[in-house]
Design a protein around this nucleic acid. Structure first.
Lengths: 148, 148
DNA sequence: ATTCTTGCAAATGATTTGCATGTAA
DNA sequence: TTACATGCAAATCATTTGCAAGAAT
């Protein structure tokens, strides 16, 4: 069965069934084990920018005996399979995972510590760098707060 | 004696005398000990985006018996005194120190791993974010390579 | 049977901390 | 003498690795 993986838009949260998770894993060449399905469901459709620790905490409540090594192992596999992106932000030592694998920027709320996505078209970056700079990517982190 | 600290531009590398380092330390309320002068001279006028480890390596060659704790301790003090800025880049787990304390962006050379500064005026960022976003800072990291 | 996965514990790398000693106003 | 600095080793935190045991094909 042929799956048009890249044409499928990033899912909004909470809308992926277990069957869909399994399909996404296998389409990406990842063997769908119980642990991977569980973590996949959490990070791909429920969590927002979780850390490995967030995933472990969630697993401790929702999965019988999952080791921390398996959490890291699985997250790394999902990143390699391009189902997940990892980020290191200036404000934290921890890696944060993002199920939004399309290019986008980030907003860091200095009051709450919450990281949120900013769609590419919301930020325009113009550079005056010389042609000797061969640019492959531009990452923008905007910090501030959100008025309630 | 009154020193116009903020009107003094960021020094290009290698041009700060020991006396100038001592003055900058004391002006910022940092007690100028031998270790702090040595590290200060290195990170403020010689090194380019060094890590704590780079500083330790340098100290081992140029200062008798400086402990790693003192290296970290001193770097943290220089950051608190606003003589140094610290950055965590997406590509590394290590903190990188920058003696350019004016606002600026960064270029990460994917071939060499070298981080370089990009002056503010070389990058223009336009956002279409709603007014509920109260922006305090925008950080841009451009990745790529430089043609030789 | 062979290959892949998991769990556990130990290892690693970066940074911090506790504490006793040293130094300076 | 009182406060601050330093060096050392141990502690901590995030992450990785080695390896033995388990599951799947």
């Amino acid at each position: 069965m042929k799956v048009k993986q890249s044409s499928k838009k990033h899912m909004t949260h909470g809308c992926l069934s277990q069957a869909e998770i399994i399909e996404r894993l296998e389409t990406s060449g990842v063997n769908a084990t119980a642990q991977r399905i569980a973590i996949g469901k959490y990070v791909l459709s429920e969590a927002e920018h979780p850390t490995a620790d967030d995933v472990k905490l969630w697993a401790d409540k929702n999965f019988p005996k999952m080791s921390l090594a398996t959490v890291y192992n699985t997250l790394n596999i999902l990143v390699e399979a391009k189902l997940l992106k990892e980020f290191k932000f200036p404000h934290t030592g921890k890696v944060v995972y993002d199920s939004n694998i399309t290019k986008h920027h980030h907003f860091y709320d200095e009051d709450t510590g919450i990281v949120s996505d900013i769609p590419l078209d919301q930020v325009e970056v113009l550079t005056k760098l010389k042609r000797t700079y061969n640019i492959t990517d531009i990452e923008v982190v905007i910090r501030g707060s959100r008025r309630r």
